[in-house]
Amino acid sequence: MKKPTAETVMPPTAGQRGPAEHDRRAQIIEAADAYFRHYGYNKTTVADLAKAIGLSTAYIYKFFDSKQAVGEAICGKCLGIILDELTKIAHAKRPADERLAEMYISIARESERRFFHDRRLHDIINIARASQWQIAKDHQAAVLELILHVVAEGRAAGEFETDSSLFKTCNAVAETFLLVWHPVLLEERLDGLEERAAEISALVLRGLRKK
């Protein structure tokens, strides 16, 4: 069975038009990424992007139906990198408890690296979550699918208990992942993030293991 990647786990971002693979689309996303990082998402209009790229506003609308759609594409690019790392860990040939523990560390490390070394990107991710953009929902659903995969394999291997509902258990685990990747929470408690991620994963794993 082929191992899924972020591209197969997460659907394409909403609001895109035209062919999925197109040089102009990539050019618009790259230019918009740079523009948003410099001026901020809220202060930028589609007309601003068009002027910066040297295209007409109408031409940009051939590929994206709104500024939000461009923002979702940028978020998808960033969150896709994080999800790819989690996917590699989740499908590694190792005990399930080791994989789950590493997933906590990975999502904390990658979120800190990508959200907080660039304030403007952090702001876009915050907007995506606060406004319930589809890309944020898709990312959370994709992470849950990876957790379900790891915990199900752990149960099959006899590592984890099997008395509780698999979905309810994994949904609860996914909620604890928010503690180490949610942009607002990380902003308030960034110091010692990886150590805290390890402590949370240890607590969760104690609850998952067979008694």
Rank of each mutant, 00 (worst) to 15 (best):
I82D: 02
L83A: 10
D84H: 06
E85G: 13
T87S: 15
T87C: 14
T87K: 11
K88G: 15
I89A: 13
I89V: 15
A90C: 12
A92F: 10
K93Q: 15
R94K: 14
P95R: 07
A96E: 01
R99E: 01
R99L: 14
A101W: 00
M103P: 03
M103V: 10
I107N: 05
A108N: 04
A108P: 05
A108S: 13
A108R: 04
S111H: 11
R114A: 14
R114V: 15
R114M: 15
F116C: 09
H117V: 06
H117R: 13
R119P: 03
R120F: 01
L121G: 04
L121Y: 10
I125K: 04
R129Y: 14
R129C: 10
A130F: 08
W133V: 03
Q134P: 01
I135N: 00
I135P: 04
A136D: 04
D138H: 07
A141M: 09
A142I: 07
A142Q: 02
L146Q: 07
L146M: 07
H149N: 14
V151Q: 06
A152N: 12
A152I: 01
E153W: 06
R155F: 09
A157Y: 08
E159W: 06
F160Y: 09
F160M: 11
E161S: 14
D163M: 10
D163S: 15
D163C: 08
S165Q: 02
S165I: 09
L166Q: 09
C170G: 08
A172R: 04
E175F: 04
L178M: 09
L179H: 03
L179F: 03
V180S: 05
V180H: 03
W181G: 05
V184S: 05
V184H: 05
L185R: 14
L186M: 10
E187N: 07
R189W: 06
L190T: 00
G192K: 02
L193A: 07
L193I: 12
E194K: 12
